[in-house]
Design a protein around this nucleic acid. Sequence first.
DNA 1: TATTGTTATACTCTATAACTATA
DNA 2: TATAGTTATAGAGTATAACAATA
Lengths: 165, 165
Amino acid sequence: MPDTPEPLDAVQLGAYFALMEVAGLLRHAVEQQLREAGDLSYVQFQLLARLGLDSPTGRERMTDLADGVVYSRSGLTYQAGLLEKAGLVTRTPSADDERGVTVAITDAGRALLAKVLPGHTEVLRHQLFAPLSRRDTEALAELLSPVRDHMRSAPPRSAAPRRRR
Amino acid sequence: MPDTPEPLDAVQLGAYFALMEVAGLLRHAVEQQLREAGDLSYVQFQLLARLGLDSPTGRERMTDLADGVVYSRSGLTYQAGLLEKAGLVTRTPSADDERGVTVAITDAGRALLAKVLPGHTEVLRHQLFAPLSRRDTEALAELLSPVRDHMRSAPPRSAAPRRRR
DNA sequence: TATTGTTATACTCTATAACTATA
DNA sequence: TATAGTTATAGAGTATAACAATA
């Protein structure tokens, strides 16, 4: 058995537990709103938001979507299938690479996103931002961004060794 | 249809997405470690940690456990059943309230916790704390603690109206 | 009558491995 | 040979509602 490494101190433990609890409670609240307002899971919302808000063209390849949403390949196939069945996205073979599949958000997908967003915003305002000042929010974003970048670069991600586009 | 509320600004969206992504990736990494080191899910680890680390006596009532871990009652019953089957906790009728059930961590439970903790710590150090200075960590804890308290007090919690002990 | 906890049940999500097709 | 994506399948987790027992 290896020697016990330096254990975490109280401040670190506090930050860790607070982070996980806040994110867990927030996700719970948000998921409820998404389910009621649009019958969407959080992951499905993430996929729609990525296509409808982040991506300028509204279309992305499966692999690139997976890199953002953290998934096994099969999990993404499953969710994309659900979204397609609901008419919120389409899946077509990629133009340049015959192996690839391009997922595109539909008008119905954009409409649902728009329908769901105001309530989503309200939940965030009440649950997350209410106790945070403007500067707090800025500080939080500035603290977490480097962590996110760090984690993205050392991916315990979806499946096997993956590669950026 | 109600008027669209003030949408979130870029800083708020950034904080929100960073929080969710960091927590999601961290949970993924941590869950993997817990599974390999002790065949535990994150929730099971939370329950053991609450009993073995937080609680001075190592015993708590089901309801109080649920209040901390965010669950449906039945979900907690399910998880407690798994832990009991594995010999990590015991469940006995509460002394004062015949309706209640007291969950207590066993020696085996404490041993497993001790076995799993060093690796857990390492994951946290590498994934979460590596890009954070000492002061960053303090700041993060101080930002998130009020949010956690706020969320706890307005519970979208487990099930029906619940009540503190 | 309200509360604690369990059970039954159904469903959603996720992961693994095997497979197809293209690069 | 490696990569993109799908399928089959199996397992874990979660939620709802009905229920029994105690307060």
